[in-house]
Design a protein around this nucleic acid. Structure first.
Length: 116
DNA sequence: AAACTGACTAATA
DNA sequence: CTATTAGCCAGTT
């Protein structure tokens, strides 16, 4: 702390914190996560942060999809398929076009009122 | 320090 | 529907 030690982890840490809050069976868009993390408009940074995510981080990265309700991912072949299966495993259904109905599955967090 | 990159999005054509 | 353009900005080289 102090001196050179600033909160440079803030950006990614906030993003991960939000993604962790996405409940099972729900999805969120990059832009949505960014906004909830207080970074409205920084959707790209969300994807970038998730890309840097390590295995076993405990962050449900697969619940984050793009605004079109589709899986982005394209770094590795078949990787997108993995995300799809992870979601289907949580009862998230995909359209015949390979899209998720955001109207049905998009996570809708309540203001300062998690749990119930 | 400047340039490059990119798991995005919305608007336009 | 697809393609292009522009805006965004942290992390990497």
């Amino acid at each position: 702390m102090t001196g050179t030690g600033h909160e440079r982890d803030g950006i990614r840490a906030r993003i991960y914190a939000v993604v962790r809050r996405i409940p099972r069976g729900r999805v969120a868009t990059y832009g949505q996560v960014a906004a909830l993390a207080g970074l409205a408009g920084h959707a790209r940074q969300v994807g970038y942060a998730l890309h840097a995510l390590e295995d076993g981080s405990g962050v449900p990265w697969h619940r984050v999809i793009n605004a079109q309700g589709r899986v982005s991912l394209r770094a590795a072949p078949g990787w997108d398929h993995v995300q799809r299966q992870l979601l289907e495993r949580e009862r998230v259904r995909f359209d015949a076009s390979g899209r998720v109905s955001l109207a049905r599955y998009q996570w809708q967090p309540r203001l300062a009122a998690r749990r119930r």
